[in-house]
């Protein structure tokens, strides 16, 4: 099953990968659990897009009141929720000032919807 890990952290102008994050990435790349992941630029570079009445409205990020922003994300392939949570708990961000959200994917094998299910233990 696939999970999106969103790393919620304080907004900073520069976001450099630390050695411990590099270790985490290397470990889960090697095991095949980490499908992909990226660092994201600071809130000032974020734009929101909405189309209303046929008009495209682009605004700055809604971050004036928000303390935490999405600093990065990873897509994880895990056997189940426990495994995904364990991988997230190993992320250095989970130990510091950040929070990690783990979002399960809808299955993408054509069985999406209310009846979608994943056979126990196997990857979808």
């Amino acid at each position: 099953m696939r999970y999106l890990m969103l790393i919620l952290e304080a907004d900073t102008p520069v976001r450099e990968p630390t050695p411990d994050i590099a270790d985490w990435v290397a470990k889960h790349d090697a095991s095949g659990a980490r499908v992909m992941g990226e660092r994201l630029r600071p809130a000032a570079d974020v734009r929101r897009v909405q189309v209303r009445d046929g008009r495209t409205v682009v605004t700055d990020g809604p971050f004036s009141e928000t303390k935490e922003v999405f600093g990065g994300f990873d897509v994880i392939e895990a056997a189940d929720l426990d495994e995904a949570l364990a991988i997230a708990a190993e992320h250095p961000g989970a130990h510091g000032a950040s929070t990690i959200e783990v979002h399960p994917f809808w299955p993408t094998d054509g069985t999406a919807g209310a009846t979608a299910w994943t056979p126990g233990g196997s990857a979808s």
């Binding site: 099953m1 999970y3 189940d80 929720l81 426990d82 995904a84 364990a86 399960p104 979608a116 126990g120």
Partner: peptide
Amino acid sequence: IRSTGITFRVPPPEL
């Protein structure tokens, strides 16, 4: 249980 991927298994030792 289904949508978050909770499986029917005994948790690993660390959990």
